[in-house]
Amino acid sequence: MAITVSIELNRELEVPAGYDEVFELLADVPRSASHFPKLEKLTDLGDNTYRWEMEKVGVDKHAIQTVYASQYFADKDAGKITWEPVKGEGNGVVRGSWVLTPKSKQVTALKFHTRAELTLPLPGMLKLAISPVIKHEFNSLVDTYMNNLKKAF
C-alpha cells in the first residue's frame, strides 16, 4: 500500500549578485544542488538530467527516502531555468522553474516554483497524519536552500 503526497511551493527572493553570475550558478545543477540540504547523492544521467537521492528520514523499517530525476533546461535570454520529471525514476515526480530578473548590476530577483508528487510506502490511513509532516519538511528544505543560495552570493 502507498500514499501520494502533492506539494506546491513558490518563493521569491533577491540576491546581491549580477544576473550572469546568478544564472550561471542556478543553471549548473550540481553547483546549485550543492546548496540543497539533506541531499545524499546527485547522479548525472546525461543530457542535463539528474537523479536526486535525499537522505532517509525516520528510523529503521519506517525510514523513507525521496528519489526522483528531472531534466533541466536553461534559457538565459528568457531568464528561465525549468525542470521536467523523468518517468520511472524513484518515488517522486518533480517539476519547476526559476525565473530571473535583473534589478540592477548587482541585484537579481528570483522566482522559484516547484510541484512535487511523492509516493511513499505507507498505509493509506496514515495519509492525513503524514501529509502535513512531509509538506512541512519539504518547505523547510526549500527555505534552507533559499538561505544557502543567498549566502553563496
Rank of each mutant, 00 (worst) to 15 (best):
E14G: 11
S97E: 12
V5W: 06
R115F: 04
D47Q: 13
L122N: 00
G90I: 09
W83T: 10
L25H: 10
L120W: 05
V5G: 01
G96C: 13
F112D: 00
Q71Y: 05
A27T: 05
V59I: 13
A116L: 05
A63I: 01
N10W: 06
A33M: 15
G88M: 11
S6C: 07
P121W: 08
S70E: 13
P102G: 06
L128E: 03
A27M: 05
E14N: 15
A129Q: 02
I64G: 00
S104P: 06
A2P: 03
W83F: 14
L42V: 07
Y19P: 04
P85E: 14
G46N: 13
L100S: 02
A78T: 08
V15C: 05
F112C: 03
V94T: 09
I64D: 00
V93C: 03
A2N: 10
K41F: 11
N48D: 15
N48F: 13
Q71S: 14
R115A: 12
E12V: 13
Q106S: 15
R95K: 15
R51Y: 07
E84W: 10
I64V: 14
T82M: 07
T4V: 12
R95E: 15
K38D: 13
P121F: 10
P37L: 10
V99I: 13
D20I: 03
T119L: 04
G88N: 06
V67N: 05
E53G: 05
W83P: 04
D47R: 14
A109Y: 00
T101H: 11
V15R: 06
K80M: 09
